[in-house]
């Protein structure tokens, strides 16, 4: 059985999928009170569902407990990299790693 292994950027552990908790899509912008209905709806419900490059949030729940980000391929489970939660967009290093393996990739407004 194919399992997903992500390196936790906080404690360096090669964490198995079963030690992690999936936190859904990464880099969402929160629209709260005062925002337009369309923005609020998109924030609540509209999610990417790509076959290929994807950015996600994960929590190292059976471990150090920290939230982090992962960039991976949903089709092959190939992991391009993991990075800390304290960032609003994927760092250049991660994007370069993806470009090296998946030239021409796009994800939302990123490429």
């Amino acid at each position: 059985m194919e399992m997903l292994t992500l390196e936790c950027p906080y404690c360096g552990v090669q964490a198995d999928e079963t030690e992690l908790h999936a936190g859904g899509e990464a880099h969402l912008t929160r629209f709260g009170p005062g925002s337009s209905d369309a923005d609020f709806e998109a924030y609540l419900f509209m999610r990417e569902n790509p076959k290929g490059v994807h950015f996600e949030r994960w929590r190292h729940v059976n471990g150090c407990g920290k939230w982090f980000h992962a960039a991976r391929c949903t089709m092959t489970l190939e992991v391009f990299g993991t990075y800390p939660a304290q960032t609003a967009e994927p760092p250049k290093k991660i994007r370069d790693a993806i470009t090296a393996k998946r030239p021409g990739w796009t994800w939302r407004e990123l490429s």
Binding site: V13, T18, E19, V61, N62, G63, C64
Partner: peptide
């Protein structure tokens, strides 16, 4: 130290 799960518990 390795924090993990043993079967179903932390």
């Amino acid at each position: 130290l390795r924090r993990t799960r043993f079967a179903q518990v932390a």
